[in-house]
Amino acid sequence: MYTLLQFIIDSGFDWLAEQDPKALILAASAIGAGITMVARIGTAIGQGYAAGKAAEASAMNPQTIRQTTFVMLLGQAVTETSGIFSLVIALILLYTNPLVIASGIGIVLICSTLGAAIAMIAGFGPGVGQGYAAGQAIEAISYRSHMQGSIIRTMLLGQAIGQTTGIYALIVALILLYANPLL
């Protein structure tokens, strides 16, 4: 019978078979925790864009500095959501990775751990998009500060929908970790 173990040995990964499977999962968790942090690039770009727009707005219309600063902080905090999602997956991988005590084929456990981490890279997109929305909202408020309430509501609504992609990534990561159908 051509087992998965045989396949691993044949395909040049024979050193993998010699290791303790548990040690490999722990190693995969370590790499995975690092990979999840890639998503923070997008968050940083988005927050930087919002900050830049706020600086521009306060130069163009100094009377609305307080309002634009408030919207900047609010928008950046919502932009942070995808960063927080990847931080959560990283912390779960580091401290309470459920796959370490799960029973199954070693390579599948390792790949599930890495897959959960790679899924979180999707947080890159929502980070950039939400930051862009925040920046445009800041610009809009510097032009029409009396519309602040409705601009903030529209911004939050749009950012929440923009977050959906990141949420699907989180769902896949949590399924891989806690309810893996492949085990």
């Binding site: 959501t81 927080i84 959560v88 912390l91 779960i92 977050q163 949420i167 699907y168 989180l170 769902i171």
Partner: peptide, 20 residues
């Protein structure tokens, strides 16, 4: 699905980060 996981994900995040 997106509505429920948005709330759940954020609150789970707050729990995990507060424990740390």
């Amino acid at each position: 699905i997106s509505l429920s996981f948005r709330l759940f994900g954020n609150m789970l995040g707050s729990i995990v980060i507060m424990i740390m």
